[in-house]
Design a binder for these strands. Structure first.
Lengths: 339, 339
DNA sequence: TTGTAGGCGTTATCAT
DNA sequence: ATGATAACGCCTACAA
């Protein structure tokens, strides 16, 4: 491998001079600068950033931890993070936790050994607490994305889950629904709790009693199996609408409904959190509370880098991004016969 | 930061002994091993992989370069790559080229300075040649994904684009279509060329003359604007079916058709390469040639690591993965009135 | 079984 | 304007 010494030798200067040319630091004559640059070209020299990291005590590597790149929400988020990282001169290390805080832990160890300059962290859930604490113990700056973790005070970019849920449920109520089921993520996850709260508040404000029989807990990733629908449907007074707490769950719900011969929205209205991007472009069907996923990543990355580079320690910043109610056709007014 | 020396000191041994404990190398008494491990725990020691990389001359970092993580095809591919990399003990550096070989070049430079052990490379197109050559010049092993690049002989995992295209067009012909348009990617990209060839061959075998007026060139990413449809539709003998060379293009085609009040499949049949995953789960609409995207990533990663770790230099391996014709409802038989 | 010396490629500091 | 030296944290080779 060609090193800085090779360049130095070929250019008849010291390694130090080469280093200065590379980093535009210190004073060197235009003449030698030219000569050195020429040699670097000829020898195809590329500085070894590991060696650099070692002495500089910074890697210019950031890491992005999400639960599943396969979910369009995180996919856009990742894109925002990557674009911004690149723009700011950072490389991006990447990992999926699969909503599993143990996988997350492995990843945190990886990240620590890499000595990344910071982490963009979309936690699996409350159990991520110890993983985050580990990061703190090692003084690795991080910004939390999407899900707050009780016990952790840090910069965060999240959506307004409660408000979004409220909009969705309000909308269903406007359409005349009162038996509204909630297919939710695990309550170990802040967004699921908030979406539940929004759901409950909305019902309460409209004077609709909350029926725990209409509430299902899943993991955000468990969308294949629609078994839980049986519980909902066998209810003496079954729901006429379902609020799915995220896009995956909604897809699962709709598929399961169709398997049972239940049409959406004719027989059952369905709404959810998070959009489906391409799907929605193809077929504007799902009524959703859409979150600006790209911004989550982009702003999170921005905050992270600011914190890393900030000489002072500014106050903790919490950015709450609103969601948009996008009304399409998966929910419809309850026809009088059902009322 | 706590280093190997701190551990050594606290455990009353030399740094070397600690190193041996960490790497399970050389012989050390169970007693000191225990003691050292205990100290490492207490001090929260995590080895610095940069320092390690420097002396070992390997980083245990691989990189994945794709054109757009936002495309479900690459998203699944990325997932396969990540899972496999993790399983094999590698970290993954990540980048989007946006079908732009200049962005790709930036990324290659990044990758070189990181001294990654290898690269999983989904090229933007034929112009990626020089980027690949740069990798070769620096002796960085790589595996090409999805798109072959003329002039480069390397391990590759790709789909059978020609065959897939043929299946799709054969299917359309079976349905009675003969005026079949092709909305293709740039011919600077191997898959676009092969899909064109498959299209042409299929037509020829069925005795249908190829009409260049029915062929559109786009970039695989240009799917927003449906302007090109006008050319197709104003044809004196307009197409009754459209073969879109990838999922993005298909979405663009369908949206543009709908904007013009043209129904799919009633007024126009549409098929394409690559599936839409979640979309298709929600609404099995598009008839596609589906490629095993996850496998592209997983197998590619496997090949890459084998090449990196392989003591010998085995022959170049070319893996061609078949695509599946998935018949749904976006294409239908041509009714007699149009024949 | 354990330790010493030297080096991986770079840069900060301080001379010259 | 340029260079010598030491250091970043770790590991290989060799010695004890």
């Amino acid at each position: 491998m060609v090193t800085i010494y090779d360049i130095a030798q070929h250019a008849n200067v010291s390694a130090m001079t080469v280093s200065k040319v590379i980093n535009n630091t210190g004073r060197i004559s235009e003449q030698t600068r030219k000569r050195v640059k020429k040699v670097m070209e000829e020898l195809n020299y590329i500085p070894n950033s590991n060696a650099r990291s070692l002495v500089l005590q910074q890697t210019k590597i950031l890491s992005l931890l999400i639960t599943d790149i396969t979910n369009p929400f995180y996919t856009s988020l990742a894109r925002g993070a990557e674009d911004t990282a690149k723009r700011l001169g950072y490389r991006l290390l990447f990992g999926n936790s699969d909503e599993d805080y143990l996988k997350e832990q492995d990843y945190v160890d990886m990240v620590l050994s890499t000595r990344v300059d910071g982490v963009l962290f979309a936690p699996a859930g409350d159990q991520s607490l110890k993983n985050l604490e580990k990061l703190m113990a090692h003084k690795i700056p991080f910004v939390i994305l999407d899900r707050a973790v009780p016990g952790i005070e840090s910069d965060i970019v999240a959506g307004d889950s409660k408000e979004g849920a409220r909009k969705l449920v309000d909308y269903l109520i406007e359409l005349g629904h009162s038996r509204i089921a909630l297919v939710n993520g695990s309550l170990e996850v802040s967004t699921a709790r908030l979406r539940y709260q929004g759901y409950a508040e909305s019902l309460k404000l409209q004077g609709i009693e909350l029926d725990h029989e209409l509430i299902i807990q899943k993991s955000y990733r468990d969308y294949k199996d629609g078994e839980y629908l049986n519980q909902l449907l066998s209810n003496p007074s079954p729901p006429t609408a379902i609020f799915a707490a995220n896009n995956f769950l909604a897809v699962g719900v709709i598929r399961a409904l169709r398997e049972r011969g239940i049409r959406v929205p004719e027989d059952m209205s369905v709404v959810c959190f998070d959009d489906l991007d391409l799907s929605s472009a193809l077929d504007p069907f799902l009524t959703v509370a859409s979150q600006p996923a790209y911004l989550f990543g982009a702003m999170g990355m921005q905050l992270l880098v600011e914190r890393i580079q900030g000489n002072s320690t500014p106050d903790i910043r919490k950015i709450i991004l609103p969601s948009d109610l996008i009304i399409r056709s998966s929910a419809q007014a309850l026809t009088s016969e059902y009322v």
